[in-house]
Amino acid sequence: MDKFDEERLEVPFGTKSLDAALCVPASVTDVHTAVILTHGAGGDMNFKHLLSLAHSLASNGFICLRFTCKGLNLSYRVKAYCAVWDYLKSLQKFTIKHMFFGGRSMGCRAAVAVARQLSNESEDPVQGVICLSFPLHPPGQTSTHRQRSEDLRKLPEHMRVLFVSGTEDNMCDRVLFNKVVKEIKAQVEVFWLQGGNHGLTVKERAEDSVLDEVNSKVIAWINADVYIYMNAIGWFTSACFGAAKYGSRTVEQGKHSLSKCRFQRPYTFSFCYRFSCSRIAGGKRDGSSTNPQ
């Protein structure tokens, strides 16, 4: 019995449509974490690595929407990515609380660009970006790395980014890449696949073994983010409820607890504060109580 269900879709995109596939867990109905994936300059959404990752995500309890966009212009790919994100949000059968963007090669450049755009809009909290074989430069043309890494450098501090690249990738010079990483404000984690090329294949190693290793890394990274995010909400919610009885000092303690979380997010604090205080019986937004003592 399959651990996931897959549905083929057509996502509206202007006067056209984008081929897409929605993978969801077969036995889980209350799913709140979703991932969007797309391919590189060549191929489509059925590129083996994307297909394997999508199925693995759904089998582990996540929603995964992957799509095909044949355009080679980055701005066109970004518009397509936004259309897919809008479509996913419109599906009323899901309540998505944790959102991750991802892609392979040019697809992850588009994912980063959209995440950067949305980071300026408080309504769409994207928690992280998954970059499979980020193309820092064309083969042998390392001088373009500044332009290609611009969106990465402008991601906010609260964003998380996972890079999965091969040590033999001819589109990602490791020395240049390490310099770029030092300039990125976001929370970065890098996984180097030993012997891997730009297609994340490794000589003299079974492809399924490589796929399993990459998929496991991505899933563990997402799980860690969601776990700490929920703990941050728990810490702050408890502090705000305590504030109704003990005063604003408890809220300050909650802020401190939240700031200690290494995945700081302005929208997390704002949401927790509003959510918690709205549920304090007779409480004001500043955490003080209007109930008679």
Rank of each mutant, 00 (worst) to 15 (best):
M171H: 12
A83M: 04
F163A: 02
E121K: 15
V114G: 10
F62C: 05
F163Y: 15
F94S: 12
A115M: 00
T95K: 15
T68V: 04
K203P: 12
A111F: 00
Q194M: 05
P156A: 11
R148A: 07
T68D: 06
D173G: 11
G107T: 06
W192F: 08
T142G: 13
L74N: 07
S165Q: 14
P156I: 06
Q117W: 10
K154G: 04
S75L: 13
G128F: 05
Y76K: 11
P138V: 07
C131R: 08
K185V: 11
N170R: 12
M159T: 15
K182Y: 06
F134P: 14
L72E: 13
V180W: 12
L200Q: 11
E150M: 11
G128C: 09
F191N: 13
L162P: 01
L88S: 02
K182Q: 15
S165Y: 06
W192A: 10
E121A: 13
G103E: 05
L162C: 13
L132G: 10
M99Y: 03
F100H: 05
M99H: 03
T68Q: 06
T144P: 02
V129D: 00
L132R: 05
M106L: 07
F101P: 00
S133K: 02
G102P: 00
N178Y: 09
V180E: 07
S122K: 13
E150D: 13
E157C: 04
N178S: 14
C108H: 03
L72S: 04
T144I: 08
S133A: 11
K89A: 08
K185S: 12
L136M: 15
R174V: 10
T144A: 09
L91W: 02
T68Y: 03
C172P: 03
Q187P: 09
R77E: 00
A58Q: 01
T142Q: 10
N197S: 15
K185Q: 11
A58R: 07
S59V: 05
E121I: 13
G103A: 01
T144H: 14
R116V: 03
L88K: 02
V126M: 07
H145L: 05
F177C: 00
R116Y: 06
V84A: 08
T144Q: 14
A113Q: 03
D86T: 14
G71A: 12
V161A: 10
L118P: 00
H98G: 05
E123G: 12
F62L: 08
M171D: 06
C64H: 05
L162T: 01
V181K: 15
K182P: 04
V164C: 09
V188R: 05
R116T: 04
Y87V: 10
R116Q: 15
L136F: 01
E183T: 07
A115N: 09
F94G: 05
R116A: 14
T144S: 14
V181T: 09
S149Y: 08
F191D: 14
G166N: 02
K154V: 01
N178F: 06
D173E: 13
T167Y: 03
V202C: 04
C69S: 08
D86F: 10
D86H: 12
R174S: 15
A110V: 11
